[in-house]
Design a protein around this nucleic acid. Structure first.
Lengths: 148, 148
DNA sequence: GTTGACCTTAGAGTTAACTCTAAGCTTATA
DNA sequence: TATAAGCTTAGAGTTAACTCTAAGGTCAAC
């Protein structure tokens, strides 16, 4: 049986976070000392690791709550329920990814277009592109040409 | 001169958001009616559009504040200041991107590994993989083989 | 028997960027 | 002139996932 600080050491999650997860119904210490100290069993630890793994995979605490309720009674739940949660998360991730890739591309183009030197920003092509609403087809190419 | 609702229509930013941006020092209505109504000039509108464009590119309101203070006095700022802000943002975007790509890959592998059918989740390979801390080299391949 | 490290709880604070509400003026239209 | 739409402000609420604080109880070691 581990005390909260020992579980914290083992999982890398802070004691604060572990209590926070408990308050939100994700985990629990199956035993308490008379004084109220939390003591975690092996099974408790495995549940915490499950939460941590799911967290690293991108699932929200809310998703994880659902996954955990499947986990404790797998017989009453289908694989489809699990894949639904997973697919929704993948859809979210893909949407965010598309957004970030577009930003990445824009930022790279902006950086390519600007000299980045110590000269003053009067003709800075990054500022110009932002002013023009990024409308130039290639933001500035190398020569600063603007599409008709 | 545009009233706030007209500016809202033109930019797609809500009047609430425009006031919020003003409160945070990003934009301003250069004129107010006697009664206090905001009236936006062409220059005001261009500034708002700049903010919107920068926002879409991923810059935080804080970044945008810096970009705007360069914008109003380009002579006193260098291209390097602009590229520094841009490069920092690109670094952030790339970091987030790496995280999301890893999640995407994991989620795809999880989905491939699971039948997703109506059968109960007793042997669901997604649940198993999360339980095992995603340690299996390929999460389950197609056969559920575990590396030594 | 007294340090000092660790534990408890309830509840407040953090972050970013909105988003909304309430209470009360103003303005345009019929 | 009455009504409705629109504007003003200050300030509270939202979201997610922590993160921290205060006030106090517990425990192991010296």
């Amino acid at each position: 049986m581990l005390k909260i600080s020992e579980l914290s050491d083992q999982t890398g999650l802070s004691a604060h976070t572990l209590r926070y997860y408990e308050k939100h119904g994700l985990i629990n210490a199956s035993t308490r000392s008379e004084a109220g100290y939390r003591y975690y069993s092996e099974a408790d630890v495995r549940r915490v690791e499950f939460v941590k793994t799911a967290r690293n995979t991108g699932f929200s605490l809310d998703d994880i709550g659902q996954l955990l309720s499947i986990r404790v009674d797998k017989q009453s739940h289908s694989c489809q329920e699990v894949t639904d949660i997973t697919r929704n998360k993948l859809d979210e991730v893909n949407a965010k990814l598309a957004e970030l890739l577009s930003m990445q591309q824009t930022l790279e183009l902006l950086l390519e277009s600007c000299c980045g030197g110590p000269e003053n920003a009067t003709h800075c092509s990054i500022m110009e592109a932002l002013d023009a609403g990024l409308k130039r087809r290639e933001i500035a190419d190398q020569a600063g040409d603007v599409p008709a």
